[in-house]
Design a protein around this nucleic acid. Structure first.
Length: 310
DNA sequence: AACATTTGACCGTC
DNA sequence: GACGGTCAAATGTT
């Protein structure tokens, strides 16, 4: 990997290291559970971003920024930031990398796909020599959490379905991790409301299982929900809702573990117990294969996929 | 009412 | 002085 592509990666890993050191320092002192949790969230977030960069093959910026200039301390706690006259001096010291995002024509009028963060547009400029204006976004949580991350979005001249996105600074807010955490802890009813408000979600996945029916059945629904197909008994989906993220078509069922408290063996066991628990069904003894799947990446999923089984 | 976007003005850099 | 980035008042949306 060339040097320019390594930079944001090194940056994320270094931040993870720094947060780990902070956590280590705290171990000798009295520490609230909340502080501990925040540090751990930050560490996990850094490593998830680093892994995501490796998986996505982001095209990082080629500008010559030295590693020292993009250390998190200069970005986050810069005391002169409140003085607007110093904003321009600070620009050069921000971590900066770019990414190209291709979108289907007609699906996105105002900008490219959700990248997992919430942004507020604060400006737009016509750029010399460019046929499309450049839009400027900053993190929605700038005022509340002091998050200084910004991004610029510009439609490509060559291919108008491509958006060139330049990110500046690093998110110091906890929005993404808080969201997934809230989804895990929120009771079912509230969870449904959250999903309705934001139908597309991004989730980081390490690994999971791929289930395929092997004999006597045509679809995964018949394996997992035989009662639904053969009598009027209510479907027992509680376990699935708590343990699985689903991605599937009619013949392949992919289960990802998004419950941090559950191990992969728990997940495997849960699939087996779910498929065997439908003892009233004539399909209870159907065979299926269960394969381990390595994934290591972020996926965007449509909430309506989950609703198929609810 | 609260929040998000638009847009002309302003400011620092080159 | 031109250009790019940001501010902030006006306007739009929910």
């Amino acid at each position: 990997m060339e040097t320019s592509r390594k930079r944001p990666l090194i940056n994320e890993l270094t931040q993870g290291k720094e947060l780990t050191n902070q956590l280590k320092d705290y171990l000798d002192k009295p520490m609230s559970a909340e502080t501990c949790e925040l540090l751990v969230e930050g560490i996990l977030s850094s490593y998830e971003k680093a892994l995501s960069m490796l998986n996505k093959g982001i095209a990082f910026d080629e500008s010559p920024i030295s590693f020292g200039e993009i250390s998190p301390t200069t970005e986050v706690s810069d005391p002169v930031d409140s003085d607007s006259r110093n904003v321009f001096k600070k620009r050069k010291t921000d971590a900066k990398w770019s990414e190209q995002v291709k979108v289907c024509s007609g699906t996105m009028v105002e900008g490219p796909l959700n990248d997992g963060y919430s942004w507020r547009k604060y400006g737009q400029k016509d750029i010399l020599g460019a046929s499309h204006p450049r839009a400027y976004y900053r993190c929605t949580h700038r005022n509340v959490q002091g998050c200084l991350a910004t991004k610029q979005v510009q439609r490509s001249d060559e291919d108008s379905s491509v958006f060139e996105i330049t990110y500046r600074g690093r998110h110091t807010c906890m929005q993404a991790t808080q969201l997934s955490k809230a989804l895990e802890k929120t009771p079912k009813k509230e969870k449904e409301n959250i999903q309705e408000a934001k139908p597309t979600q991004k989730m980081h996945i390490e690994h999971g299982f791929c289930l395929k029916p092997s004999k006597g059945v045509n679809t995964c629904e018949e394996v997992l929900f035989p009662s639904f197909l053969f009598d009027s008994t209510p479907i027992e989906t509680e376990k699935l809702e708590n343990l699985f993220y689903l991605g599937c078509d009619s013949t392949t069922f992919i289960a990802f573990n998004h419950n941090l408290q559950s191990s992969d063996s728990d997940l495997s066991e849960m699939i087996n117990s779910t498929t065997n628990s439908q003892t009233n069904s004539p399909m209870a003894d159907v065979g299926f294969s269960l394969d381990y799947v390595d994934f290591h990446g972020d996926i965007l999923f449509d909430i309506t996929d989950l609703e198929k089984f609810a």
